[in-house]
């Protein structure tokens, strides 16, 4: 059976700069896959290409066997891909509840919409703090709460695949801990496949079953998380290789 998401030979250019160079990866159903790498390695570009925000120069992206290259970005949300962008990007002057409500916006069919109301409750039970603050403006939440809201907003569309871009960015270690255990919980309880882009390699490798390491737009290492956790090349991707 074809994987849930299959990216083949993806190349992406910003003007004269090549951000992604022949990247291939796949995500199976019910799996967490991590993409690791230093800042500027092309991780965010990869996610943006998958969700149609930027158009690749070459290569193909298939989701459930369907080629995504000619599909409008906004219609992907209704097809089961939810993207939590880097930096959370909650709508700061909208309330928490409105933010969550917008998460369902892309879902078209009314039958499914009815199911989603229960999902909203589910999100509130996953993140009880959001329920307490649902009338508050999203901009007044703390960083960790905003991250929960951004993830919750993605979950209410009942996605099959969740794209998470740097969920730990700028958060205190204890909050990072919380976010990662929530990610694992979501994966286990909701049966959602997750493509996780992270700088925090150790945490990501613990959560994911497989991982790819990007360096300057190329995948340099890939494999099982357990193996990669021991691999010196992971640290090298962040902190360089030179021996002292």
């Amino acid at each position: 059976m074809a994987p849930l998401l299959e990216v083949k030979d993806l190349c992406l250019d910003y003007g004269a700069v090549r951000a992604l160079n022949s990247v291939s990866l796949s995500v199976e159903e019910d799996e967490i896959v991590a993409v690791l790498g230093a800042n500027g390695a092309g991780k965010t570009s990869l996610l943006k290409a998958v969700s149609g925000l930027i158009h690749p120069t070459e290569g193909s992206i298939q989701f459930r066997g369907e080629d995504l290259s000619h599909i409008q970005a906004f219609s992907l949300a209704g097809r089961g891909i939810a993207h939590v962008p880097e930096g959370r990007r909650v709508f700061s002057t909208l309330s928490v509840q409105e933010n969550l409500m917008l998460g369902k916006y892309g879902v078209r069919s009314s039958r499914k919409k009815a199911d989603l109301d229960s999902l909203e409750e589910r999100v509130y039970s996953l993140f009880p703090i959001l329920k307490d603050r649902r009338r508050q403006l999203a901009g007044t939440l703390s960083g960790g709460e905003q991250q929960m809201l951004a993830i919750g907003r993605a979950l209410v569309s009942s996605p099959v695949l969740l794209l998470l871009d740097e969920p730990s960015l700028g958060l205190a270690p204890i909050i990072v801990q919380e976010i990662f255990s929530l990610i694992k919980k979501i994966h286990e309880e909701e049966k959602i496949a997750i493509l996780l882009v992270e700088q925090n390699a150790r945490k990501a490798l613990k959560a994911a079953s497989r991982a790819y390491i990007l360096e300057l737009g190329k995948i340099v290492v890939s494999g099982d998380s357990a193996d990669l956790a021991q691999d010196p090349r992971v640290q090298a991707a962040y902190l360089g290789t030179k021996a002292c």
């Binding site: 219609s75 939810a82 990007r89 709508f91 909208l94």
Partner: peptide, 24 residues
Amino acid sequence: SNFGAAVRASALDRETAILLGIDV
């Protein structure tokens, strides 16, 4: 309304609005 929230969302952050399935 939902649509009104979508309008405000598009004004705040167009890219994220698209990610949520809002047809800008």
